[in-house]
Each structure stands twice: as structure tokens, then as C-alpha cells.
């Protein structure tokens, strides 16, 4: 029933860890998020040290996102061109974000800023997605009552913003059916990369709303493309963490990925059965629930007033 983890130096129950992997993998396949913002605290709850939890989580996300990307790619849901632009931006942003954090740590108050960024970003993204999805679903109900108006409702989604259209290097992204300047996904990728580095997360839950609302990509392509981007980000993170910090626990990652790869496939199948707006509402609820959890952690006194140095 138990497996000893050689790097985390602790023993864990097989079923608990595989179950965690399955649950978070399901969310990953369903929403196109890596799930790091859920998995790392869950691993810490079962006694894994914070630095090892975060690094090993990146390792298991490689498996889950590879599995999810593969499934979405077969369904034609991965916009590789858009993914590459976002990825390049993400790498740049990550490098900038790491420097920002270094500066903040030197001046003090970095932890406060990280937590506050987390709460504000999650709260804003979750609330916006929730309200927007409810609004869109109501619109559709009205549209289905008057079928003649339906084609007119779909049209504004494809309408291009005047400022974005005036930018140079315009590129047509066939898979998403949108045209943008190459600078737009590069800039947005950098923006998410900076925030992700500050918050210490992969950034999937930020990238998904950016692709939906700013790049106007269809929800199913968003999920596949987000997983594609997360896959490459986590490959880089896993290698660097193993090489520089020796914090990747291979056995823990194996148990997690055993659950998460199956979870990702189940999530993809489930996601196919749900409408785009339904997916958005579910993701919004998840993001808001995590926000509430973080707020409660901030205002309630912790049961232990000490923690090992290292990690957030």
C-alpha cells in the first residue's frame, strides 16, 4: 500500500497519490489547465515538502499535458502556430518574472505581493468568466427562441478589434479561424509568463481566458492549444528543477502521472460532451473556489506557526 519517496524522504499511500493524479488530470483534460495551482497544495497536505511538491508536479504535468495534447491533437483542437507564438512569449515573460521576484525578495515583501497577485488575478478571472458565460448562455436561449437571429449572434465573435487589426505582422491562424498580429500572442504570452513566474504556477488558468477573450479563439481549440503550450513549459521546468535544485521526485511523479494520464483522457472525453459555455462556467467555479480557499488561508490563523524554509 505504501511507497517510499527517495527525494521527498517520506512514505505515501499508492491509492491516495494515484487518486490525486486522476482528479487533477481530469481537470487538465477538461479545461486545458495544468492543475499546478491545485496539485501543489494537495501534495503538501499529504506531507510532501513544498519545493519537491512544486517541482514534481511539473514533472507529472508533462505526462498529463502530453496525454491531453495528443487527445486534442487527434480531435483537431491544437493550434500549433498560435501555441508556438504564446510559448515564445511565455519563455520571455518567465525570465522577466523570475528577475522581478529576485528584486522583490531583495527589497522584502515579495510573499505578500505573490499572495495578493494570486487572489486578485484568480478572483478577477473567475468572476469575469462566470458572469460572461452566464450572459452568453442567456443570449443563446434568446437566439434559439428566434432562430433567424442566430447567425447574427455568432458574427460579433469573429469581429476584429480596430487597434489589433492596425498592428503589423498580421497572421491568419487557420485552426482557430482568427487573424492577429504576431505581436499580440507574443505580448500576451509574455504577460502571462511574467504573472506565472511571480505566482510560481504554470499559468494555464490565466492563458485560457486570454485565448478565449483576447485572442477570440474557439473554446475547444483553446483547451488543446493551452495543453500544448503547458507541455513545453513543464518540460523546461522539470529539467531545470531536477538539474539545479534536485527537487524532482521521480517515484512521486510516476504515481501521479499514472493517475493523471488516464484522468486527462477522461477529461477530454467529458469535455467533448459539454458545450463551450458550460466548460467556461465550470472552470470559473473551480477558479473561484480556489480563490476562496486562498482568502481563508490568509485570514484564518494557521494551525502551525512555523514552516520549513523554501517554497512559497
Amino acid at each position: 500500500m505504501y511507497m517510499y519517496l527517495p527525494i521527498a524522504l517520506t512514505s505515501v499511500n499508492y491509492f491516495v497519490v494515484i487518486g490525486l493524479g486522476l482528479s487533477v488530470g481530469l481537470l487538465s483534460g477538461l479545461f486545458g489547465v495544468g492543475g499546478g495551482f491545485l496539485m501543489t497544495p494537495l501534495l503538501m497536505m499529504i506531507g510532501i515538502p513544498p519545493t519537491i511538491a512544486a517541482a514534481t508536479d511539473a514533472n507529472q504535468i508533462v505526462a498529463a499535458s502530453a496525454s491531453g495534447t495528443f487527445a486534442h491533437w487527434r480531435l483537431g483542437n491544437v493550434d500549433v502556430k498560435m501555441g508556438v507564438y504564446l510559448l515564445v512569449g511565455g519563455f520571455l515573460g518567465g525570465a522577466v518574472g523570475v528577475q522581478v521576484i529576485k528584486l522583490l525578495r531583495a527589497t522584502g515583501g515579495a510573499d505578500f505581493l505573490i499572495k495578493m497577485t494570486y487572489v486578485v488575478m484568480l478572483g478577477l478571472v473567475g468572476s469575469f468568466m462566470f458572469v460572461e458565460s452566464i450572459h452568453a448562455m442567456r443570449k443563446k436561449k434568446v437566439a434559439s427562441a428566434a432562430p433567424a437571429a442566430q447567425t447574427k449572434v455568432a458574427a460579433p465573435a469573429k469581429k476584429r478589434n480596430g487597434f489589433f487589426a492596425s498592428l503589423p505582422l498580421q497572421v491568419y491562424f487557420e485552426k482557430s479561424g482568427v487573424t492577429h498580429s504576431a505581436l499580440v500572442p507574443l505580448f500576451l504570452g509574455t504577460f502571462v509568463g511574467v504573472l506565472a513566474a511571480i505566482m510560481g504556477v504554470g499559468g494555464g488558468f490565466l492563458m485560457v481566458p486570454v485565448m478565449v477573450y483576447m485572442l477570440r479563439m474557439p473554446m475547444h481549440v483553446v483547451v488543446g492549444t493551452s495543453l500544448f503550450q503547458i507541455l513545453f513549459t513543464c518540460i523546461e521546468v522539470t529539467f531545470l528543477q531536477a538539474y539545479s535544485n534536485r527537487t524532482v521526485d521521480f517515484f512521486l511523479a510516476l504515481l501521479l502521472l499514472f493517475g493523471s494520464v488516464f484522468g486527462a483522457q477522461i477529461g477530454t472525453v467529458l469535455g467533448k460532451k459539454l458545450h463551450g459555455d458550460q466548460l467556461k462556467i465550470l472552470l470559473a467555479i473551480l477558479v473561484l473556489a480556489v480563490t476562496v480557499k486562498i482568502v481563508l488561508e490568509l485570514v484564518l490563523q494557521p494551525s502551525l506557526l512555523l514552516a520549513y524554509a523554501g517554497g512559497h
Binding site: 527517495p6 514533472n59 496525454s67 528543477q241 524532482v248 521521480f250 510516476l254
Partner: peptide
């Protein structure tokens, strides 16, 4: 494995990534 993680960190990192990739794509298949 503990020894490898310390003495051959680069190889350990590559192995972790490759096995995760293989597991993910195998389950996909």
C-alpha cells in the same frame, strides 16, 4: 535513484521528462 538525482542530475532530469512523455503518449494511444 537518490544517488543518481545528486551525481547525475542532468541525466535524472532527462529521464524524468522522457518517461513522463512516453507515459502520456502511450496512454493517449
Amino acid at each position: 535513484l537518490s544517488k543518481m538525482a545528486v551525481d547525475q542530475a542532468a541525466l535524472y532530469g532527462i529521464m524524468s521528462v522522457l518517461i513522463a512523455l512516453a507515459a502520456g503518449t502511450a496512454v493517449g494511444a
